[in-house]
Amino acid sequence: MAQHWTHRGGGWLPPQSPRPGVIPLRPLGPREILGGALTTLGRYGGRLIGALLLGQLAGLLVLAAVAGAATLASLTRTAGSRAFVYTLVPATALFLLFAWALATALATALLRPAVLGRPVTALGLLRAAAPRIPAVFGARLLALMAAAGPAAAALAVGLPPLAVLPLAPVALWLGVLFALAPTAAGYEVLGPVAALRRSARLVRGAWWRTLGITVPAGALALGAAYAVQSWFGVLGSLLAPALLLTLPQLGAGLLYMDRLLRREPGVTPG
């Protein structure tokens, strides 16, 4: 291995890992992953959030159309109010899942240029992410169903919440095990089921480490969103949800890259 001389105290040290972009190209520590997510947001945040808002416009138009149709139904049918609720609530839930999947697909599309220090545009990000949104959406939905499905089914059949409480550790374990599935679906062009299997392989042996990074990333996003909303008023109210969607996905993307570099050292981000 090539070595170099250091003037601080003298001695031979191995060369530093190359860092063309937001992270060094080597296995990362938790601080480097969280710091890299913030650095990525600082360098590419405007383009990332711009792409997210552009992508959400189509979803908002569809939701508005559904809301309009439900409103017309409520005016023309006896049970119209029920039709309005039963139509609008699932449509809103699907839109929120779509926005979540869109943010993940965009963060995944940003991984390569961010890690390699390459420029990118909002439209370029959206074009790169768009083909992978269905697979990312499917992986996100399957991961959510695997983690929350058993408890939701138990509550649906009438079991009391206390009876469902023992399922909470299982839900947490599955949620962390499949935490990298949406990123894998976007980065490796995998289908939803294959992405879940890929996440399980990458997280195996690092479950606690994955939990210890994803939770602080979510807390960091909450703090940043609250600060932005407090400081910028109406504009902050528009930016805060975008931060809540994108910052944890950037952290998950860099954690995914770390797991690749650790388990498959020959992998290259490009």
Score class of each variant (00 low, 15 high):
R127G: 03
M257H: 15
V164Q: 02
A227R: 06
L244V: 00
G35C: 12
A51V: 02
G42A: 13
L250F: 08
L111H: 01
R209T: 11
I213P: 13
V136I: 05
L28T: 10
L75C: 09
S230C: 00
L61R: 09
R112G: 00
R19I: 07
P30I: 12
P131M: 00
A83D: 06
R82Y: 10
A156H: 09
P216I: 10
L75S: 04
L110A: 11
P14E: 15
L254Y: 12
L94I: 14
H4L: 14
L102F: 01
L142W: 04
T6G: 13
L235Y: 14
A152R: 04
T40H: 05
G138I: 05
F98S: 07
A37M: 09
G50L: 03
T71A: 15
L202R: 05
L54D: 10
L196I: 08
Q229F: 12
G205R: 03
H4N: 09
P119N: 08
T246K: 01
L97I: 06
W173C: 10
S74T: 10
A252D: 13
A219Q: 11
L162C: 06
G59T: 05
L106P: 14
V157E: 10
G138N: 06
R118M: 07
L28C: 08
V203Q: 12
H4Q: 15
